[in-house]
Amino acid sequence: MREKILYLLGLAAFVILARDIYLIARLPPEAAQGYAFKIIFFHVPSWVGAGASVATALVASVLFLITKNFIFDAAAVASTEVGVAFLSAGMVTGSLWARPIWGIWWTWDERLTTTLVLWLLYVGYLMLRHAIEEPTQRATFAAVVSIFAFIGVPIDYFSIRWWRTQHPSPVFFSSTGSFPSDWGAIMGWNILAYLLLAAVFVAVRLEQEQAQRELDSLRRLAHSF
């Protein structure tokens, strides 16, 4: 039953994505940026997916520390892994866009740099998990690191913003850019598709993590005879 729901959600995500790609492909080139602007339809949803995953990881980590229920630990690691994947996707799509528009693959602007720092933080989290054998200690320490990493998000963002800025200011919620409403609709659907994908990935990884833990405990039990 649970699996079927997951398949359905995944399928829905793919259908929406396919429709969006079709629509995006038919959009005319933008005045200043040509075709490269279309990357934004995949770039922004990556951030939304990453943000949602990382926030889920924080909530799950806090819940683990309070309840000591390992399902929250599994949720934390699953959403952190998906978050890292989406952060990577965001950086890659940003890079692909920057090359034709700015003439460079990478720039040390506020958003890219914040992302990179976050990516490093959460990769550190995943590496720490690999280095700890004992599951209770692993879950506890990882949860603490996750909380520490999340505290850093706003400080990182604002300090890097004051440091230097080259990134185009967000075209939504700001007066400088303009984004036609039908484009906005496509963006909305794409964000939904990405969020669905993130949810499916997290759910699959969570199941794997639970199974892995059960396996480890059975192995331990086998050794105790």
Binding site: V117, L120, G124, L128, A149, S159
Partner: peptide, 8 residues
């Protein structure tokens, strides 16, 4: 773990 945390 500490260096990315220390960035700001």
């Amino acid at each position: 773990l500490t260096y990315p945390m220390l960035v700001p």
